[in-house]
Design a protein around this nucleic acid. Structure first.
Length: 570
RNA sequence: GCGCCCGUAGCUCAGGGGAUAGAGUAGCACACUCCGAAUGUGAAGGCCGUGAGUUCGAAUCUCACCGGGCGCACCA
C-alpha cells in the first residue's frame, strides 16, 4: 500500500530548497481537525531559509503541487498547506489491502527476524498471584505479540522468583508444621501460611533462622531431600499460576527463573574482580557507581552470599550468549528503576557493547482503596478472583439482554476477561492507579466490551448479508459509495493500523494500540448510524460490506495483539 | 537529604514544539415500526499545578518552586 506521508514528502521536497527529504517528511503532519485535510505541511520553519513570510511560502507550495493526481484538493490556510488526498483511490486501496491480507493485516517486517526477549509476569513462588501482577503479565504479553507482528522472533521468559533464603524458611516451616495434602489442595495459600507462621514463631525461637539458613545452604549444595521439596513447592505453585495464564491465554517459552542462574553467578563475580570493579565496604563487596550518579551496587553480602543484582547480570550474559538477542526487554515495576540502572551500567563497565540493548519497561504502582497491598495483613486482591467476577458479571449481562450465542460460558469468558485486559492496557503504563471493583466491572464507554460489541455488530451485518459478503470480498468494489465523511474517517483509521502497531512497539506502550482500536470502533459505530449498509443497490451494498469487513478484520487483528478475543456474537 | 516518575474538564485519562487543547464518565437534552441501544447525536464543562526562561510559536523543551508516588547496602 502507498505510504502517503513519504510520497507527499517527495512531492513537496521537489519544490522546497534547503531541506532534505527526511526533514520534509518530518514536518508533514496529520491535522487534528479533519476539516484541515488529510495531511498538512506547516511552513514556519522555511521562513528563515527562504526569507519570506510563511503564508506566502505555503501559497506557493500549494499552487505548485495542486495539479498532482494524488490530491483531490490542496489549500493554503495561513502558514499551512492542507492536502486532501483522492478519496476514491484511497478507500479502494485500503479495503483491497485489508481483505487481501486478512489476519495478516497490520503485520510488518521491520524486525527482519531478529530475536527479542521479553521477560514478563515473573511471580514469586508460593506467594499469591494478585492484582498487582496483572500489569507485567498483560503488558508484557501484549509487547511480545506486538513485536511478533513487527517481524521479530520473540522469546517469552517468565523469570520466576523461585530462589533465595525464603525457601529455606519455607522448607523449615513445612517440616515443623506442614501437611502434604494441604499443599496439594491449596498450594499457594498453604505455603504462604507456613511462611507467615515462620515469621511469627521466629520471634520466640530465633534458632529457627539458623535452621532455615542451613536448609537453604543444603538446597544450594543440591542435597537431594531439600531439592525435592523445593521442586515440589515450585511445581505446585506453577500449576496454580498456569490456571491464571490459561484464563488469560498467555504462554511462555521459558520458565528459567532465579534458581536457573544460581550457578552462573560466580563467573560474574570473577569478571567483576578481573576488571577491578569490586571493592570492599563495611565487609561487603560493592561496585562503586558514584561517578555515574548512582548509589553503590551490593554484589556480595558480608557473609559472602550473593544477591539479586548479580543474578540479573548473570541472566543477561546468559541470554546474550544463548539467544544473541537484538533487544532484551524487561517488563518490571518502576520501583526497580534504580536497580536496572545499576546493573545495566555494570554490564557496560564490564565492557559489553550490548549493554544498551537491555531495556527496562517500567510501569506504575497498583494500590487498593485502603492502601498499598499487603499479603501479611490480608490486604490483597487475587487476580483469579477479579477475572472470575468479571466473567460472572458478563454472564449476568448476557442473560439480561437475552443475547443469542451458541455458548454463553465461552462468550462470557471472552468478554469478561477481555474487559480486564483492555482496561489494563488503556492508559500509559507509567501511571499509578487504585484498584476498584466498580471500575473493572464497568463495561460502558471506552472499554473492551464496547470494542467487542462493535465487532459482534459488524459480524452480525455480514451474517445478515449472507452470500453478498463473498461478492464484497472478491469483486471489484465501487469506491464512490464509501467516501462519505464517516466511511472515509473509518478507512483512514484502518489504514493507520500497521503504523500504530509499530509506534506502540517502539514505545513499548500497548495503550497506543488500545486507543487506536477504540477510535476504529467509534468510527465504525458512527458510520453504522450515518449510513444504511444493507441497501437494495447491489454495487453500493458490496462496497459498504467490503468496508465493514475491513473494519471487522482490523479490529480483530488489533485486539489479538492485546491478547484479547473477538466474539462473533455477544 | 539525594535521585527518578506523575500533576490537563467534577472524576478517569489522551495529546510530548505548530491551527480553535481532545475522549470516556457523571449530570442535562435528544434518537430504537429501521442492518444488534453493551449504540449514536447535541449542548455544557479548561489561567494544561505555580513562576521564570528558550522559540516566530510552549500543555509539550529548560530551570526553580509547590503537591503526590516510588527508590536510595546486606529482600527480590
Amino acid at each position: 500500500m502507498v505510504n502517503f506521508k513519504e510520497e507527499i514528502a517527495k512531492i513537496i521536497s521537489e519544490h522546497v530548497e534547503g531541506l532534505t527529504l527526511a526533514e520534509v517528511e518530518n514536518i508533514v503532519e496529520v491535522p487534528q481537525d479533519t476539516k484541515m485535510g488529510d495531511y498538512a505541511f506547516p511552513c514556519f520553519r522555511l521562513a528563515k531559509v527562504l526569507r519570506k513570510a510563511p503564508p506566502m511560502i505555503a501559497a506557493e507550495i500549494a499552487e505548485k503541487i495542486s495539479g498532482n493526481p494524488m490530491f483531490e484538493k490542496v489549500e493554503q490556510v495561513n502558514a499551512y498547506v492542507n492536502m486532501f488526498i483522492s478519496k476514491k483511490e484511497f478507500v479502494k486501496d485500503v479495503v483491497d489491502e485489508v481483505l487481501a491480507k486478512g489476519e495478516e493485516y497490520g503485520k510488518t517486517d521491520v524486525g527482519g527476524g531478529k530475536t527479542v526477549i521479553v521477560e514478563f509476569s515473573s511471580p514469586n513462588i508460593a506467594k499469591p498471584f494478585h492484582i498487582g501482577h496483572i500489569r507485567s503479565t498483560v503488558i508484557g504479553n501484549s509487547i511480545n505479540k506486538i513485536y511478533s507482528a513487527m517481524g521479530y522472533n520473540v522469546v517469552r521468559i517468565n523469570h520466576l522468583g523461585d530462589y533465595g533464603t525464603q525457601f529455606g524458611k519455607m522448607i523449615c516451616a513445612y517440616r515443623h508444621w506442614g501437611n502434604k495434602e494441604d499443599v496439594i489442595n491449596e498450594p499457594i495459600k498453604t505455603l504462604l501460611s507456613y511462611y507467615t507462621r515462620f515469621h511469627v514463631e521466629v520471634e520466640e525461637h530465633p534458632e529457627l533462622d539458623d535452621e532455615a539458613r542451613e536448609i537453604f545452604a543444603k538446597l544450594e549444595r543440591g542435597e537431594k531431600e531439600e531439592v525435592e521439596l523445593w521442586q515440589w513447592f515450585r511445581d505446585e505453585s506453577l500449576k496454580e499460576f498456569n490456571r491464571v495464564y490459561k484464563m488469560l491465554g498467555i504462554e511462555f517459552d521459558s520458565y528459567a527463573g532465579e534458581s536457573f542462574y544460581s550457578d552462573k553467578m560466580p563467573r560474574i563475580v570473577e569478571m567483576l574482580e578481573e576488571k577491578g570493579l569490586l571493592e570492599e565496604s563495611n565487609g561487603a563487596q560493592i561496585v562503586d557507581l558514584e561517578p555515574y550518579g548512582l548509589t553503590p551496587a551490593l554484589i556480595k553480602k558480608s557473609d559472602g552470599s550473593s544477591l539479586y543484582i548479580t543474578r540479573d547480570i548473570a541472566a543477561a550474559v546468559y541470554r546474550k550468549e544463548h539467544y544473541d538477542f537484538y533487544k532484551n526487554i524487561y517488563v518490571v515495576a518502576s520501583q526497580q528503576n534504580l536497580h536496572f540502572q545499576q546493573w545495566i551500567k555494570i554490564i557496560e563497565l564490564l565492557g559489553f557493547d550490548w549493554a544498551k540493548d537491555n531495556i527496562h519497561v517500567p510501569f506504575g504502582l497498583v494500590s487498593l482503596e485502603d492502601g498499598t497491598m499487603s499479603t501479611r495483613h490480608g490486604r490483597v486482591v487475587f487476580l483469579e478472583d477479579v477475572l472470575n467476577r468479571a466473567v460472572d458479571q458478563t454472564r449476568e449481562i448476557i442473560k439480561e439482554k437475552g443475547v443469542n450465542t451458541d455458548n454463553v460460558d465461552e462468550t462470557a469468558k471472552q468478554v469478561g476477561i477481555g474487559a480486564v485486559i483492555f482496561q489494563e492496557l488503556s492508559n500509559n503504563r507509567i501511571k499509578d492507579y487504585v484498584f476498584s471493583w466498580d471500575k473493572v466491572l464497568d463495561f460502558n464507554g471506552e472499554t473492551g466490551p464496547y470494542v467487542q460489541y462493535t465487532y459482534a455488530r459488524a459480524a452480525s451485518i455480514l451474517r445478515n448479508a449472507g452470500e453478498d459478503v463473498c461478492k464484497a470480498a472478491e469483486g471489484e468494489i465501487s469506491p464512490e459509495y464509501i467516501t462519505g465523511e464517516s466511511a472515509y474517517e473509518l478507512a483512514k483509521l484502518i489504514y493507520a493500523l500497521p503504523q500504530v502497531i509499530c509506534d506502540a512497539g517502539e514505545r513499548y506502550e500497548p495503550s497506543v494500540l488500545t486507543r487506536h482500536i477504540v477510535d476504529m470502533a467509534q468510527s465504525f459505530n458512527r458510520f453504522y448510524h450515518d449510513e444504511h449498509i444493507l441497501v437494495d443497490d447491489e454495487e453500493e451494498k458490496a462496497a459498504k460490506l467490503a468496508l465493514v469487513k475491513a473494519a471487522k478484520t482490523a479490529i480483530k487483528n488489533g485486539l489479538s495483539l492485546l491478547g484479547m478475543e473477538a466474539p462473533e456474537r455477544m
